[in-house]
């Protein structure tokens, strides 16, 4: 699907109307909020301000309850992840009544963007070589190593998050960023891709968007987390669907001791999904 969302003109939240050295920039209209790039305390510290405007279509009582709850739970979960060493943006400031959360700016792009661009280039080069280009990605072709390595890093990040007792609640390839490797964030030794080397899928996985997250150590909740991502992945990047499940499972096992139980539950959750009776 092509991007047909026009950049919109919105009134700024009050916090962004104070004089500052840089004008805040609307980066994207996410699923729930608007994300601005601004600075925090110093002009040299970039900051992501996630603003959840009132949703006029929602009953005001319900709207206020949801917004407040989600901002607070997102902040709480981010702080916990951070403390436990899971790669997420730091929380700078919160005002749940005004509807915003100020977060560390994460450089790079969402995983979805990298994967779609990678798949597009792959198809183009397949077509240039006279093939159909619609073939599914199996992971066996030498060029697929980048994608396999990326999926392994995703599974690793999820394993670490689950290990510290957090479930995300909205895992998609839009809700994880690929942050360029940098100081103190070296590419892991076994993470070397050895693929095409166009760097599209390079970077550290940083999980974001914890508005629907919560604390849970239930294997069922964890399995549902994986299931949600599996389905989001399959519908967003259909050609890489099969590869995703197999790679995810093996890497998740390596990252998380309790993985076998979760994966068993995942099988149950999948069955339930397939069996879900669908009446007209």
């Amino acid at each position: 699907m092509t991007d047909d969302t026009e950049p919109q003109q919105f009134p700024l939240p009050a916090i962004l109307t104070y004089p500052s050295s840089k004008t805040p920039e609307l980066i994207t209209q996410g699923a729930e909020g608007r994300l601005y790039k601004t600075t925090y305390l110093l002009p040299s510290v970039p900051c992501a301000l996630k603003y959840r405007p009132p949703k006029p279509w929602r009953h005001p009582v319900l709207d206020a309850r949801l917004t407040r709850h989600r901002i607070l739970s997102e902040a709480r979960v981010l702080v916990k992840c951070r403390r436990e060493g899971v790669a997420v943006p730091a929380v700078y400031a919160v005002d749940e009544a005004a509807g915003w959360l100020a977060l560390e700016w994460v450089a790079g792009a969402p995983v979805r963007v990298g994967v779609n661009e990678w798949l597009r280039r792959r198809r183009d080069s397949e077509r240039a070589a006279g093939r159909g280009g619609d073939a599914v990605v199996t992971g066996d072709a030498p060029g697929d190593a980048d994608l396999v390595a990326l999926m392994r890093r995703i599974a690793g990040a999820l394993g670490r998050m689950h290990k510290v007792g957090i479930v995300h609640g909205d895992l998609t390839t839009s809700n994880m960023m690929l942050r360029p490797w940098g100081e103190g964030r070296e590419r892991p030794a076994n993470g070397h891709a050895g693929g095409q080397g166009d760097g599209l899928l390079e970077g550290e996985i940083v999980l974001i968007d914890f508005g629907l997250a919560g604390q849970s150590t239930s294997d069922e909740d964890r399995a549902v987390d994986l299931y949600v991502l599996e389905r989001a992945f399959a519908s967003t990047h259909p050609r890489a669907e099969a590869l995703f499940s197999t790679v995810l499972e093996s890497a998740y096992r390596e990252a998380f001791k309790q993985a076998p139980i979760v994966l068993k539950k995942l099988e149950e959750v999948r069955m339930r999904g397939r069996k879900r009776s669908m009446l007209g």
Binding site: M1, T2, E32, T172
Partner: peptide, 18 residues
């Protein structure tokens, strides 16, 4: 409200406004 929310999430994810 729930239905509008999940629809909006999908719209943001696939980049569609229709």
């Amino acid at each position: 409200a729930m239905l509008v929310e999940i629809t909006e999430r999908a719209m943001a994810h696939v980049g569609s406004a229709q």
